[in-house]
Design a protein around this nucleic acid. Structure first.
Length: 945
RNA sequence: CGUCGAUUAGCUCAGUGGAAGAGCACCCGGCCGAUAACCGGGAGGCGCUUGGAUCGAUACCAAGAUCGACGACCA
């Protein structure tokens, strides 16, 4: 790192009496936006990260495992927050005395990239091509994101990150699948998904769009078949007619062959209606829909009995055209907006239908699934086998009309789900999927996954603490994990399944390893080209490759296997010490990683979880393009600098939302300038100080300096504490107050006289410089994790001529000792500072009258009661320096009283004190006795200040 | 709708069951040897609203408001 040339001093007539003025090449203005990129290049070229690792090699390992961002789009400020927080944590652990590592990663598989490829290259590409193009696209995205992350000053193994799409990673992921399969967690079951017949696959929500569609809406009667139960439910001894129907309304007649139940709302009133139609003399309808329905069907009728929906629970009615019962199940989702207040339920073709049937104990094997993947009914379906469901719609209506169960049919236009690729209608369809069972006992006989995971949550430290109940609740309530996806850009669920039975091959475990070996060489593409016979020989004719890929959450969720124990074991350990992500990852990465690790390791892959909120604008609103309140990290770096962004992250309480706006950044930049200037003052006033030679022993320091060091030790304690709790905003706050109140507002202000006017190498000045040296060494260490650029810049200024891989502030630790004992210095000087407050206030009132300008023009007389008077008198003549006045007199008094008057003496040209002895030496008529002594004599003794 | 979190000066944050704090910003002044700096002084807060237990709450409890996170294949 290079420091800027010294700015030319303003031309001023040089006094013939020299002063020890501050001197440094360290510029007052950071000019960060311009200079930071050069430093990043320097760190990269010199391999700073690895130099630090070497320096820390003997320390205990501490691992922050990176949650991989998705390899798509430029980074936004949320990414920046996440990476900066991680960097601050890693660097703080480094300086706390650990060998803290950071291997960044990227999540590469999944739908967003698949969609990008589809947008760029069109639809319907063969899998192999999708995979090749996705791989290339992900690489491009990663390169861009990597540059932006590095620009933030984030240190890590950027030249060797982990990518979930690396063949070795893909192979290890298949091995992870093998482990959970071997443990017995994996099973096959039904699950409703959005299904496109033209794609022949499931659709993600993002692939579904709504368009108008015209269907046949039908009112369909389900005949009574449990008359006694029905009569009883309505409070009747018997039904007045043997014939009757409960009526449903649906816009999807094609689901009726799969009807297996009827849904009523438990709290709605249902009516038994007697009509004037001999073919259908009794009807059951929701009471509030009776008038509407009668009118609609052109019937007359009257309500002869009523009951709540729940009274009809489990009563069975007859399917409208097959000879089987359809029982009433209760469901809160039934509404009275349309139809009859009764909903027909085909569990294979509706989410609510599926869930309610399952809630009533229906097994997967009992769910009727007559619709095949191409949209045709299975050949075995009575009456309609082989027909496309859309062609079957009118035939089903005709059929019901002939059976006398059709009440009405009409065209009906509504908004309906369509495939965004094909613009064709999509249905919900129960499909076979692979699951990891939450309540499955593993083969070892250990606890279920849910129990293990809940115990793991308990064993984990959460920052902030409310993360624990949150994750706990999610684990406690979540359903089984659907591992399978019907996609192309993902790691294959490399199962071989029996052509007929769908059973897994008996040697599945070893087959998975065989596939993993091939994927390790050829990536997931190797699975595409694999012939079943290569693995199974003569068995091949009975088995097919499972076409599913793994949920991308399985990719990132197994990085503790594929990265910590896979691709980067040298840099890692298991479990990791920390995972750190946005609060959404309780449902995401924290969650998936926990489950996979509990299945594989029986414990969480992390010891600590740290969560941050999301970035909002000054008014607490989410950032969005439409609101125009987006702050781009790239832009902040290019204008204010990355250290400003880093300081903003550090200064904000990330446990909630992080507010960001131009004004907030401006305030942060103010804070930065304050810190930078304070640091600069320390640097400039120790420029002629060589710690190896000039350091004054702690017990030889003036008392004020020992007090300043006591304050510094206190600051270190507080900051280390706050860092340990990851409360960086507390660190920032403490340092800011330290710089403003303790240093700028008091210590440094007082010190200027001694620094500038005492002999350059005098004990008095060396004492001050010793304190400044320790303070500087401390501050640069405490700030280094946050203001990475600035602190390296300072370090290079302090130790010029060395490259960053030879000398970096990050080689240092917080064990730096600030010498001295606190004793009662803090209390003693707190009292003095309070008196000083009274003095400055008194001077201020004199100033308002125009009697004095500088406080040095003032003489102060303090009356004080004991023991305060003694405490003041103890400092003797040094007291005036504490108050920055020319003279102080202390008198006993009943209460504290400060009187200020202008000095009657001459101002010393050199030290600006007003003293009686100015001009006392004829050879030097314009300066005082102190200055004579400091320049030509033995110099002042400064015991206290 | 449900679960969770947030709400103290213009901004960022402290804090305590007993008369509201800091830094910065703002206003006024000083200095002119940290100078696109530095020092001093001042002004500024129905502590989101409404109830409740309490002698008494900003702090404890409950409801509401506003904002935010998550809610199943979407990383």
């Amino acid at each position: 790192m290079q420091t800027e040339p010294k700015a030319a001093k303003a031309e001023k007539p040089e006094s013939k009496y020299p002063l020890n003025l501050p001197d440094t090449p360290f510029p007052m203005r950071g000019d960060l936006a311009k200079r930071e990129p050069k430093w990043v290049d320097d760190w990269t070229q010199k391999k700073l990260y690895h130099a630090i690792r070497r320096a820390a090699a003997s320390r205990p390992r501490w691992v922050l495992h990176d949650g991989p961002p998705y390899a798509n789009n430029d980074i936004h400020v949320g990414h920046a927050v996440n990476k900066i927080l991680k960097d601050i944590v890693v660097k703080s652990k480094l300086m706390a005395g650990f060998d803290a590592t950071y291997v960044p990663g990227w999540d590469c598989h999944g739908m967003p990239i698949e969609i990008q490829i589809e947008k760029k290259f069109g639809k319907g590409l063969p899998a192999k091509e999708v995979q090749a193009k996705s791989r290339a696209y992900a690489h491009e995205q990663i390169e861009k994101q990597r540059r932006d992350f590095m620009r933030l000053g984030v240190l890590g193994e950027w030249e060797n990150p982990y990518l979930t799409m690396n063949p070795s990673n893909e192979a290890d992921e298949i091995r992870a699948l093998r482990k959970i399969y071997d443990a017995g967690y994996v099973f096959r079951g039904l699950k409703p998904v959005n299904w496109c017949f033209d794609c022949g696959s499931a659709l993600a929500e993002a692939e579904v769009e709504y368009q108008d569609k015209t269907d046949i809406a039908v009112d369909v009667g389900f005949a009574f078949r449990e008359h006694d139960k029905l009569a009883k439910a309505f409070g009747l001894a018997a039904l007045p007619h043997p014939t009757g129907f409960i009526v449903i309304w649906t816009t999807t007649p094609w689901t009726l062959p799969a009807n297996q139940a009827l849904n009523l709302h438990p709290d709605f009133d249902y009516a038994l209606v007697e009509t004037n139609d001999a073919a259908r003399p009794l009807l059951v309808l929701a009471k509030d829909r009776v008038a509407f329905c009668m009118d609609r069907w052109g019937l007359e009728g009257k309500v002869i009995a009523e009951c709540k929906g729940r009274a009809l629970e489990l009563i069975a009615f007859a399917h409208p055209f097959y000879d089987r019962p359809s029982p009433v199940y209760l469901g809160e989702y039934v509404t009275l907006d349309t139809g009859t207040g009764i909903v027909h339920s085909s569990p294979a073709y509706g989410v609510e239908d599926f869930l309610s049937c399952r809630a009533y104990g229906m097994k997967d094997a009992d769910v009727l699934t007559p619709v095949l993947g191409d949209g045709k009914y299975a050949a075995s379906l009575a009456e309609f086998g082989g027909l496309s469901i859309w062609d079957a719609n009118p035939k089903i209506v005709e059929h019901m009309a002939s059976k006398g169960t059709l009440f009405k049919a009409e065209k009906f236009q509504h908004s309906y789900m369509h495939c965004w690729r094909h613009r064709t209608p999509v249905i919900y369809r129960a499909t076979n999927q692979w699951f990891a069972g939450m309540d499955v006992k593993p083969k070892t006989g250990a606890s279920s996954l849910r129990e293990t995971a809940l115990a793991a949550v308990e064993a984990t430290q959460f920052f902030p603490a409310w993360g624990k109940p949150r994750l706990h609740a999610m684990i406690a309530n979540r359903p089984d994990w659907t591992l399978s996806r019907q996609r192309q850009w993902g790691v294959p669920m490399a199962f071989l399944v029996h052509r007929e039975t769908g059973e897994l091959h008996p040697r599945t475990s070893e087959l998975l390893e065989a596939v993993a070996k091939r994927v390790e060489q050829g990536g997931i593409e190797a699975w595409q080209t694999l012939e079943v016979s290569e693995l199974l020989g003569s068995d091949a004719k009975d088995y097919v490759k499972n076409p599913d890929t793994l949920d991308v959450w399985f990719d990132s969720g197994t990085t503790h296997e594929t990265v910590l124990r896979g691709s980067h074991p040298e840099q890692s350990k298991f479990p990791a010490d920390m995972y750190l992500e946005g609060s959404d990852q309780h449902r995401g990465w924290f969650h998936s990683s926990l489950l996979t690790s509990c299945m594989i390791n029986g414990r969480a892959p992390y010891n600590e979880l740290l969560t941050h909120g999301f970035v909002v604008d000054q008014n607490g609103r989410k950032m969005s393009k439409s609101l125009g309140n987006v702050v781009a990290p790239q832009k902040v770096c290019d204008t204010l600098g990355a250290d400003i962004l880093r300081l903003w992250v550090a200064a904000t309480d990330y446990s909630g939302e992080l507010a960001l706006s131009d004004e907030i950044l401006k305030r942060v930049a103010d804070t930065y300038r304050r810190m930078r200037n304070t640091l600069r003052f320390l640097i400039a006033n120790t420029a002629d100080f060589d710690a190896s030679k000039d350091l004054v022993a702690a017990d030889q320091l003036s008392e004020l300096d020992r007090y300043a060091l006591a304050l510094t030790r206190k600051l270190v304690r507080e900051c280390r504490d706050a860092y340990a709790r990851y409360e960086f905003h507390a660190v920032t706050q403490k340092i800011q107050v330290f710089c403003s109140e303790d240093l700028g507002g008091f210590y440094l202000d007082v010190l200027k006289d001694r620094l500038y006017t005492c002999g350059a190498t005098s004990p008095a000045r060396r004492s001050a410089q010793t304190a400044l040296h320790h303070i500087l060494q401390t501050l640069v260490r405490m700030l280094a994790p946050i203001l990475s650029f600035t602190c390296e810049e300072i370090w290079a200024t302090l130790y010029p001529g060395k490259t960053v891989d030879e000398s970096s502030v990050l080689f240092e630790t917080w064990d730096y000792v600030v010498p001295g004992e606190d004793g009662n210095l803090l209390e003693t000087w707190q009292t003095l500072r309070e008196v000083r407050g009274s003095v400055t206030k008194s001077i201020e009132s004199l100033r308002e009258q125009g009697t004095v300008g500088s406080s040095l023009q003032a003489n102060v007389v303090i009356s004080a009661p004991e023991p305060l008077a003694a405490a003041l008198l103890r400092l003797g003549d040094d007291l005036k320096f504490v108050f920055i006045t020319s003279r102080v007199e202390v008198k006993p008094g009943s209460e504290l009283n400060v009187e200020v008057s202008p000095s009657a003496h001459q101002k010393c040209e050199r030290c600006w004190h007003y003293r009686a002895d100015v001009g006392g030496n004829a050879a030097h008529p314009s300066i005082c006795g102190r200055c004579i002594s400091n320049l030509y004599g033995d110099g002042e003794q400064r015991v206290y200040a």
